[in-house]
Write a protein that binds this DNA or RNA. Structure first.
Length: 849
DNA sequence: CAGACCGGAA
DNA sequence: GCGGGTCCGGTCTG
């Protein structure tokens, strides 16, 4: 059957996003529900203004995919349920709705999960299989059911019956009919067609010959077929058996039953999850699911014939994209590695003492759920053990593996981790970077290299070419793509063309890009198989608990006046960064945290500012031009020398630098609204060694110059972390800063000197492009907000004691509705006509100080 | 080992 | 809707 092409978007019903009107399913229901004893336990409207989608990985729910019938003249069965205002639907609650945690929005497939429900954990385990997490905060989780998420669900073995049954189980209302239809329709077409590699050739394979014949009639696909082959080949399907993932309880001989929980099997490290007495069982539910996924292959359908046709290896991306985007018939990639007798086995296993954590097991069981290796993406926060997941995958497949990293440094780290966690013969690991070009001695092995080494297009050094030919010429069992969010980049995506591999595992902490290419990963690599919940991991002590705060630093009169007159955005951001009040705040915070015994990292994107701050505060710093030796020296001192408690880094430190000592992080300048940079910087302190100390907290400060574009970008940047459940506190005044001795730029003279220097700097360094119009014109805003959504930053009014060591800081209590003003600065105080007013009041305030 | 060059970020 | 201008890392060359 030909899959239905998507109908044009507009068919009789506006595809209105559900805005604030429907954002309150819980409050509208529960405020009238007197059984919730504590009103303040309930989220308020503001809390529910979770940001709408923050990336484009998810295709919007498309009601228009339903055929119009006499029953559903509007094209879907739910429209008539909506009043003009798109209020929440009138479906009656089930009698025992309080036990059920899900609200399902029939219009767009959004699902809201109450975290305080007794069946929360079970519902969550179910939801992460079938839906895409959008936002997971303390009380509310928001998910979206999308074609891609359902694709992932099917590819880990769930059937449409499973999905609908469990939706019904957890939903407070009857599952809307159109959601059921949507699930039905999507699951019908998914998982039918596979892409397989055999003897270095790619085949499109299916159990259903008709689907393949249909594909071959497609113009794009037929062009990619290898022409002189038989139209369809038919062979017997391979047999499957039980598989054990190394490092799991099963593998180390611990009975995989609930009772075994209390035996406390040996731990990988000091931090392990606590047992849960919850009847709906956190850990147990996780494990049940893992077990379920592992065992599910026993009941797999008995199909004994598969059909296939060959496609041109050069054109697989084209085929994948076409099938995924145009035909809505994504190619699943599965590697039956145990049946592979062509490729040599690799002698590798995890060291016997190594046991992976439950979420790693859960992630991997989704990859290996049916005894084969499925291609896909696993999302884990920094410091949660991504590398070990990759290594365990390699130990499961036990074929030649190739690991791709973004930098040579991370290549070295992977090699070390392989030696640490697995028993692989060090000779079987080869490094391939510009510096080192090792070769494999045996038939099978692990190659670790950088993306750029593989994708290099220009002339190659002789030895480099040799190694490349080797890599491209052979067939790999597993390709691990570290920092997989870089793969959609024009150059880097070539790796999937150049390297012939049976399975692909993408790893990242932040599946985000500010462009819309992230969705390409769906066909370049595969579906997102697992995404960890940051909040949960930090509660369990796997990653550090972090207090986030935004410190508002008023601009001084001189700086603000120059700021308003500045002709270029560069000059403006430099002035905001070099704001003396910000410098003072930075000085104060460093001093404050050094006294507490914290190790502090200060981040600045701007190199000039970095040097100024570092020399002014007499702290060592590292940036791009810093030589290798000096870098190591600084880092080593930071780790070991008590006298060096603070270092300053440019964006060199955003990724890959592993600094387990750091416990406090201060940002003074950042790259526009990059949510990924924000998340990655936070990641620097998530692996803090001291994270399991009693009451330990790591700190993350963003210093923001008030009333500048930094305010706007800051709220953008936080969006991702807010979705992960982090609350940003706003600090408007640092108590005690006035009494601080040796405060920099305390007098006018010093400030003027600095200003002169900054102005000089911005003249010489910056271009002279004029700011055409308003600072927040679409031109400047689009990049960080291409969907025009509110960022929905959750501001949490802090109590004085809530921030450990925060006794000296005053928090702003946020008035309701303040969020909106912040997220939409064009409506607030940035309008041109208000600038004059602002300047006057600014000057007045300065005088009062 | 510096410097040219390219590509990524966003 | 496109491409800023800048920093950074990797690779190759001399």
């Amino acid at each position: 059957m030909a899959p239905k092409r998507k109908a044009p978007a507009a068919n009789g019903r506006p595809s209105k996003r559900v805005a604030s009107g429907v954002s309150t399913p819980v409050s509208t229901r529960t405020t009238s529900d007197d059984d919730y004893d504590e009103d303040d336990e309930m989220p308020e409207d503001d809390d529910l203004q979770t940001p709408a989608k923050y990336d484009n990985t998810v295709k919007k729910f498309q009601p228009s995919t339903y055929a119009r019938t006499k029953d559903y003249p509007s094209g879907d069965p739910a429209s008539h349920l909506f009043k003009a205002k798109h209020d929440f639907f009138d479906e009656p609650l089930k009698a025992d709705h309080r036990l059920r945690p899900l609200w399902i929005d029939p219009e767009n497939g959004r699902v809201v999960l109450e975290t305080f429900s007794p069946s929360f954990k079970r519902a969550q385990n179910f939801l992460i299989n079938i839906a895409e997490p959008v936002s997971r905060t303390t009380n509310m989780h928001e998910y979206t059911i999308s074609p891609h998420s359902l694709f992932a669900a099917v590819s880990v073995g769930l059937t449409k019956e499973d999905i609908i049954k469990d939706l019904e189980l957890f939903s407070k209302t009857k599952v809307p009919e159109n959601i059921k239809q949507f699930v039905h329709q999507v699951t019908e077409s998914f998982g039918k067609v596979r892409l397989v590699l055999k003897h270095n050739k790619y085949f499109v394979e299916s159990n259903d010959a008709k689907v393949l014949q249909m594909l071959l009639r497609d113009e794009v696909i037929s062009q990619c077929r290898v022409q002189d082959t038989d139209e369809l080949m038919t062979e017997k399907a391979a047999k499957k058996g039980a598989l054990v993932i190394p490092g799991t309880r099963e593998a180390v001989g611990v009975p995989n039953q609930a009772q075994a929980e209390r035996q406390q099997p040996q731990k990988r490290d000091e931090a392990d999850e606590e047992d849960s007495d919850d009847e709906f069982g956190g850990r147990e539910a996780e494990k049940d699911m893992a077990e379920f996924l592992r065992e599910e292959d026993d009941e797999d359908d008995e199909i004994d014939q598969v059909h296939s046709f060959e496609i041109d290896g050069e054109k697989i991306q084209q085929v994948q994209e076409h099938c995924n985007v145009k035909l809505n018939l994504p190619l699943t990639e599965e590697y039956d590695f145990r049946a592979d007798e062509v490729n040599a086995n690799l002698d590798i296993d995890l060291r016997p003492s190594v046991q992976i954590r439950y979420y790693q097991e859960h992630a991997l069981s989704k990859m290996f759920g049916n005894g084969r290796a499925r291609s896909g993406i696993i999302v884990l926060p920094c410091g949660a053990g991504k590398t070990l997941v990759g290594i365990t995958a390699a130990c499961t497949v036990r074929k030649s593996a190739i690991i791709l990293c973004t930098s040579a440094m991370s290549v070295m780290q992977w090699k070390e981790e392989f030696k640490k966690w697995s028993n692989i013969n060090p000779e079987d690991i080869a490094i391939f970077t510009s510096g080192e070009k090792q070769k494999l001695n045996h038939k099978a092995g692990v190659v670790i290299c950088t993306y750029s080494m593989v994708t290099q297009n220009t002339r190659r050094a002789h030895d480099s070419k040799q190694v490349m030919d080797f890599i491209m010429g052979r067939e790999w069992g597993l390709m691990v793509l570290d920092e997989v969010h870089v793969v959609p980049a024009e150059m880097f995506r070539r790796v999937t063309e150049r390297i012939k591999t049976h399975s692909k595992l993408g790893l990242t902490a932040t599946l985000l890009r500010e462009d819309d290419k992230i969705k390409d990963l769906n066909f370049l690599i595969g579906p997102k198989l697992y995404e960890a919940n940051w909040l949960q991991l930090s509660e369990e002590g796997h990653i550090a608990r972090v207090q986030c705060a935004e410190v508002w630093c008023p601009m001084t009169t001189e700086f603000y006046s120059e700021y308003l007159q500045a002709k270029t955005t560069n000059k403006r951001s430099l002035l905001s960064t070099m704001n003396p009040r910000k410098f003072q705040a930075c000085q104060f915070l460093i001093d404050f945290h050094e006294r507490r015994g914290d190790k502090v990292i200060v981040f600045s994107d701007n190199v000039y500012a970095l040097k100024q701050y570092a020399t002014g505060l007499k702290k060592p710093y590292i940036y791009g031009d810093t030589g290798q030796r000096e870098r190591e020296l600084v880092l080593q001192n930071f780790q070991q020398n008590d006298a060096v408690s603070t270092i300053m880094l440019s964006k060199i430190g955003d990724t890959s630098l592993d600094l387990p000592e750091a416990t406090c992080l201060i940002q003074i300048s950042s790259h526009y609204g990059s949510r990924r940079q924000e998340a990655q910087r936070l990641g620097r302190i998530l692996r803090a060694k001291r994270r399991n100390d009693e009451g330990f907290n790591a700190f993350f400060y963003s210093l923001v110059s008030k009333d500048t574009n930094e305010m706007y970008y800051s709220s953008k940047r936080q969006a991702f972390l807010v979705d992960q459940g982090y609350a940003f506190k706003v600090i408007t005044h640092l108590n005690g800063i006035d009494r601080m001795p040796n405060l920099a730029y305390a007098n006018q003279q010093e400030r003027m000197t600095l200003l002169t220097d900054v102005l000089l700097q911005s003249e010489t360094a910056g271009g002279v492009e004029d700011i055409k119009d308003d600072l927040f014109s679409d031109r400047n805003v689009r990049r960080v907000d291409h969907k025009g959504k509110k960022s929905g930053v959750k501001r949490q009014a802090g109590t004085l004691s809530s921030l450990a060591g925060g006794e000296n800081m005053a928090y702003m209590e946020y008035a309701k509705g303040r969020n909106k003003a912040l997220a939409q600065p064009r409506n607030a105080f940035f309008r041109k006509e208000e600038r004059q007013k602002e300047r006057r009041s600014k000057a007045a305030r300065e005088m009062l100080e």
